[in-house]
C-alpha cells in the first residue's frame, strides 16, 4: 500500500463523513484542529518510521495527501542517505 493511500485511509478513518481525495486541501474542509494535526504527525512518524523536523512542520507539507506523501519520500531518502 502506498504512503498516499495509507495517509488517506487514516484521514478518512477519522473523518468518514468527509469526501477526500489525494489532492484535496484538508485545511479547506475546515476540520483540522491542533489535536488532529498532532495525531496526523504522530501517524506519519510512526507509520513511515521518520521524524519530522521543526522546519518541515509547515502547512504546505500537510495540505494534501500528495504533499504528505512527498514529505515522507523526502524524509525517507534523507534517512537512507544518512
Amino acid at each position: 500500500m502506498s504512503s498516499k493511500t495509507q495517509i488517506l485511509d487514516f484521514i478518512r478513518g477519522r473523518y468518514p463523513q468527509a469526501e477526500i481525495d489525494e489532492s484535496q486541501d484538508i485545511f479547506a474542509l475546515g476540520f483540522v484542529n491542533s489535536l488532529f494535526a498532532m495525531e496526523l504527525v504522530m501517524f506519519v512518524e510512526k507509520t513511515f518510521g521518520v521524524t519530522i523536523p521543526n522546519e518541515e512542520l509547515r502547512i504546505d507539507n500537510f495540505r494534501t495527501a500528495d504533499a504528505m506523501s512527498a514529505l515522507v519520500s523526502r524524509l525517507s531518502s534523507d534517512l537512507a542517505v544518512a
Binding site: F27, L35, A37, N54, E55, L57, R58, F62
Partner: peptide
C-alpha cells in the same frame, strides 16, 4: 520552542496530552 505557524498548536496539544 518548536515550530511556528499552523503546527505550533501541536506543541500545546502534545504538552497538554
Amino acid at each position: 520552542l518548536g515550530p511556528s505557524g499552523f503546527t505550533a498548536g501541536m506543541v500545546l496539544t502534545g504538552t497538554l496530552d
